[in-house]
Structures are given as structure tokens and as C-alpha cells.
Nucleic acid binder design. Structure first.
Ligand SMILES: [Mn+2]
Ligand SMILES: [Mn+2]
Ligand SMILES: [Zn+2]
Ligand SMILES: [Zn+2]
Lengths: 157, 157
DNA sequence: CTCCTATTGATAATGGTTTTCATTATCAAT
DNA sequence: ATTGATAATGAAAACCATTATCAATAGGAG
């Protein structure tokens, strides 16, 4: 396997060492792919992408690494209903940060939106607070997705 | 296969006829199971339940019928992240109606919440309206789930 | 009751994800 | 730079929820 590409130690090296994880070519290349796209890639998408540069890296390692990255909080895993999980960088300098999705039920397109509207913020904080109290439930995360037709599909046929 | 159990024609018979679908024992028994529980059953859960009364009904039919019921709008299908789809009655006299979920990431328990739904509804419709305008997206559905620890799991070492 | 065909159920197939296990690579200690 | 403990990898097989196939069955209009 050829030498790694990074020159200066990327921002995630520290966190890896802290957790006692080793820095490996597969891990770096996967993070590299994720940090260079704004798409919502499947494990296989990532595999093919990585394969261009490191043809020896196997799909198994992609899955294993993605699991690790999700567990570490670097990556978020989503299900948009097409039978395969999608991954995207959730933290790091270039990441969009927490956001929600609009999913087109016709073509599968996924739109990120980060410009939360006031109403949504209000909805979330109120709901979370009330639900925590009412059900004695410690909320740590939420999933919000809207389904419908994107601009293209709406105006088709 | 023994004769059906219902005496008077249940509320869904009409809609079946309208759509040209036949009334069959599997379909009735599956709707019967769903209408008698407030749990979020998997296809296999339903299969086992139905199997107690009609041992000849196969799992394939459960899947097929659930697909049909979802398509007809009788049943909602959810993914709570444990690798199997969950189903629950979404319309009918006894159904809770549209609601959202609290999912315990430790024990998998799922809590329906219908309180605050009024205020939530209002904020949601505002949010949907804003998003539709901003992204030129025709929203027809949404998914909202909160993840965290349920009362039991929160207080457990 | 008959006939047409929608529906069913046993079985095999599918496909994304995980497990297994022998081999390889990382990195702290030398 | 070398070594050694062991974390990480990759090929292959296993897993498992869901679907497709197809011959047999049963609903219900007439
Ligand atoms: Mn996104
Ligand atoms: Mn529910
Ligand atoms: Zn679309
Ligand atoms: Zn719990």
C-alpha cells in the first residue's frame, strides 16, 4: 500500500490518538472522500471513490470504518428510504453542521437545509423540553426529514 | 382455512371493494392484529400473532399485505433503526392518528406522543410552508423522531 | 354453482451489511 | 532502525430482512 497523502496532520488525527485508534490509510482516505463532497454517499459510493486511489481497500473496511466514524461522531448516518444507508461528515472545519433534509420521493434527490427557520427552531426547543418533562426522557438527538417532490419532479409530466 | 371471524362488515371493507381488492382471511386477520395493539410490530411480530389463529398464512403474505395497506394509507411504516420495519395502523376508528416518536437508543422502546401535537402542528405547517417556498419543494409528508434514553434506561447505572 | 383471475404460500433469490479468520500494518518500546 | 504486541485489514462466507417466482387456491360476479 502506497504512502499516505496528507502532509500536515489533519484535524482528526488528534481525536484518533486520544481514543487509542491507529491512523491508517483506509481511514484517512475515507475521511478524505467525505470531506471533499457535499453529497450523501452510500458505503459503495465511498468504496468506488476510494478504490480509484487505493484499489486494495475492501468494502468490508469501508463499512467498518464508517461504523467507527459514526460512533466517534465524525460522521452521520441517514436512511432516505432507498434501502442503503447514506453517510456524511457531521463535524470538522468544512462540515455544514447539524441540518435536516428534504427528500424527493420521485428522483431521490436530497436537499440539505441549514438556514433553519425561526419556526422550526422554536418547534424543536419547545417540543424537546416538553417531551423530556412529560415522558421523563433524556433527548440527545433528533431526526427530521420532509418528503415530497423537488422542483424538477414537481414540474415534470 | 376456517371461516372469518368478523360479524358485521368492519369499517375497511368498503375501501377494499372500492379499490377492487378482495376481502381475504389474511388481510382481515392482519388488520385485526394491528387494530388490537398499540405496539409497533415488525412483519415477523405480525406473522407470529396471525399464526396463532391461522397457521397456514405465510410470512410472504404478511409482507405483501402490509405493502398494500401502506399503499392504501391504512398502515404506516417506520424505521426505528434496528434493521426491521415497524408497522402501525394509521387510520381507522381506534387509531391514534398522526403522531411522532421518542426512541430509546438503549432498550429500543418507542413512545408515541400525541400531546402538544396541536402546537406542533401549527409550527410544522409554518415550517413546511417556508421550506416549500424557499426550495420550491412540494412537501407531502414528514418524519420526526427524537432519540435518547427512556425513563428506565436513564436511571440505570 | 362456475369460471376467471386475484391472491396465496413454499421456495428460492436478492442485496445490503456483518462475521470470520488468517494476514498485514501501526506504533510504543527498545 | 528493529522488534513485538495487537489493532486493523481484506477475501470469503454468513446473515437476515425483504422480494420474486410460480403452481395451487379461493373470492365473488354472474
Ligand atoms: Mn445532509
Ligand atoms: Mn407510533
Ligand atoms: Zn425529484
Ligand atoms: Zn430504554
Amino acid at each position: 500500500m502506497p504512502k499516505r497523502f496528507g502532509v500536515g496532520p489533519p484535524w482528526w488525527h488528534g481525536r484518533f490518538r486520544e481514543c487509542g485508534y491507529r491512523l491508517t490509510t483506509p481511514r484517512e482516505s475515507i475521511l478524505d472522500v467525505l470531506s471533499k463532497t457535499s453529497k450523501h454517499l452510500s458505503a459503495e459510493d465511498i468504496y468506488l471513490e476510494v478504490h480509484n486511489i487505493y484499489p486494495t481497500i475492501g468494502l468490508t473496511t469501508i463499512y467498518r470504518t464508517l461504523g467507527l466514524l459514526v460512533q466517534m461522531g465524525f460522521v452521520s448516518k441517514f436512511d432516505f428510504g432507498d434501502g442503503r444507508a447514506r453517510y456524511e461528515l457531521s463535524m470538522g472545519p468544512k462540515s455544514v453542521g447539524h441540518h435536516h433534509h428534504l427528500v424527493c420521493t420521485s428522483c431521490g434527490r436530497v436537499i440539505d437545509y441549514t438556514d433553519f427557520i425561526e419556526e422550526e427552531k422554536e418547534l424543536l426547543s419547545k417540543t424537546e423540553k416538553e417531551l423530556s418533562k412529560r415522558y421523563n426522557f433524556k433527548i440527545s438527538n433528533h431526526l427530521i426529514q420532509f418528503y415530497g417532490l423537488c422542483e424538477r419532479c414537481k414540474n415534470k409530466k
